[in-house]
Nucleic acid binder design. Sequence first.
DNA 1: TGTAGTGTGTAACATTTGTTACTTAATTCA
DNA 2: TGAATTAAGTAACAAATGTTACACACTACA
Lengths: 212, 212
Amino acid sequence: MRELLEEKYGHFFEEKLIEEINFHGIFKKVPKDFPMINIGDTLTHIPLVIEGAIKVMGDDGNDNEYLLYYLETGDSCSMSMTCCIGNRKSQIKALAELDTKIIMIPVQKMEEWLVKYRTWRTFVFDSYDIRLKEMLSAIDALVFHNTEERIYQYLRDKAMVLHTPELSITHYQIANDLNTSRVVVSRLMKKLSLDGKIETNRNQVKVLDFTK
Amino acid sequence: MRELLEEKYGHFFEEKLIEEINFHGIFKKVPKDFPMINIGDTLTHIPLVIEGAIKVMGDDGNDNEYLLYYLETGDSCSMSMTCCIGNRKSQIKALAELDTKIIMIPVQKMEEWLVKYRTWRTFVFDSYDIRLKEMLSAIDALVFHNTEERIYQYLRDKAMVLHTPELSITHYQIANDLNTSRVVVSRLMKKLSLDGKIETNRNQVKVLDFTK
DNA sequence: TGTAGTGTGTAACATTTGTTACTTAATTCA
DNA sequence: TGAATTAAGTAACAAATGTTACACACTACA
């Protein structure tokens, strides 16, 4: 736990804080594809990812989704923090992208530690920083990149999160995550394939080039 | 100052906190169109808007911009908070949309108050919440709305921020803020105009319908 | 007053993205 | 094994957006 955080955030965490996290946090295992948060949910705990990955998506209220970002080991969900503290409802959906282990931290503790531990404050603000950057980068992709580039970036991101260049995924799933259509994805994947950037088979995509 | 915050955030602020803000904050007047923050800037103070409005934009590094959101009276810039605390460089540009009055808060005080004042913590998290929602809504617009709808929303937002339905703006400026071309904007503005949603003249757009 | 600059309208065309329809291939499972 | 289901390829077309070119009106100001 401690090593995990210290590696991710590059600074030490007080022993007492780690003890409190272990004591007050609720350890949970979440199986792949389990829906963890839905739009409109009221949250009382903040998730901290120990192992695995969580996929966070926006939704327009009509079953149209869009992948925002992933939470990986050591990540926390800033959306949840503000939701919890402000007692507001979730604006996003989250589901496990892999079998995932998390610690759920009660919102009261989260606030208490903000006052008691300097390194917790740093952690919280780092989390916000990471999240705002992810959102900015999502906007950047939408505004400045075409669908082909977005598909390619999507595949590379996914390969990084899953720690393997070989992805078990269908064109339909990609289309859904990027809010476009399966036919468009197939068309552009063919281009990527001809350009030697990926290799495809039924239910399978291999990312060949990570050099951006 | 106190009334301003209490109206905006709907809760009281400690007298001592207000005193500290007034004492340690640096009051500044910023003229319309003044560039306040550029990409790569290192920040040491967090702006709190007293009066006026600030336009916050993303940039792809090649002179292509995109409007992210506005900061209005009572708003603070969460991006600056994380930048300051983490001693990171700004990812965004900001310029005054109107003649604007702000209070610049030194980052050390910002951190001190986090521990000392419960209402300051609430304020900070509310700020993050507002900002994350704005980002989410920007992503929503890009993913789920076409250019015509985005232009219309842009005009309505701008009218709200400037507190007037009559905007002094050119098609070229709109195109720049939405990262599209002037011709596309003219084309779609004509549609909006024929639909009775706006009225246009040289350098001038009047928003007629705010009912979304 | 005339000239240069700026803002807007519009046509024609290119490119990108979305949609529908149909085919073929792989997979599942009764 | 063979029928049903699912994934993917592709053509043909529609719609949205981007680009270039040019006309014309308004404005500023020399």
